[in-house]
Amino acid sequence: NCLEGLIFVITGVLESIERDEAKSLIERYGGKVTGNVSKKTNYLVMGRDSGQSKSDKAAALGTKIIDEDGLLNLI
């Protein structure tokens, strides 16, 4: 459970895995996936064609922004 207690938001199109697979992977390792960035969000996983508003909010809140490889490296 290397992601225990961590909260993730996924945005954009992921290249190597589907969004549902990424969500399942995060949950399997103890993390939680939500739909919107908040002060409780630990990581924003940004894929291709992701919206600017979520990354702006993450930056404003100090949320770590990672890509798909960054997510896989956490596991």
Rank of each mutant, 00 (worst) to 15 (best):
I26C: 01
M46E: 07
D67F: 04
Y29N: 10
L71A: 01
G51R: 13
K39C: 07
S50V: 09
I65G: 01
N36R: 11
L3P: 00
D69M: 10
E68H: 13
I65Y: 01
L44N: 03
N73Q: 14
L44M: 08
K57A: 14
N36A: 11
I65L: 06
E15H: 09
I65H: 01
K23G: 03
E18D: 14
R28A: 10
I65T: 09
T41L: 04
T34C: 12
D20A: 12
L25C: 04
A58T: 06
V13H: 15
T41A: 06
F8S: 02
L25V: 05
D69P: 10
L25D: 03
G30R: 01
L3R: 02
S50K: 09
G12R: 00
I26M: 00
I75N: 02
G70P: 00
S38T: 14
D49F: 09
G5T: 00
S24E: 13
V13F: 11
S16L: 09
K23D: 02
K64A: 08
Y43F: 02
I10N: 09
G31Q: 00
G51P: 14
V45H: 01
G35V: 13
S38F: 01
M46Q: 12
A60Q: 12
N73A: 11
L25K: 07
N1K: 11
L71S: 02
G47V: 11
L14K: 06
K57W: 08
G70T: 07
L72V: 06
N36C: 11
S50H: 14
F8L: 01
S16H: 15
I17N: 07
R28Y: 06
E27S: 05
R19I: 12
D56R: 13
S50L: 06
K64Y: 02
K64S: 10
N42H: 07
K23V: 14
N1E: 06
I7F: 13
I26T: 00
G35N: 15
D56L: 12
G70S: 05
I7Y: 12
C2V: 04
E21K: 13
L3Y: 00
L72S: 04
L72K: 09
Y29D: 03
E68Y: 14
L44H: 03
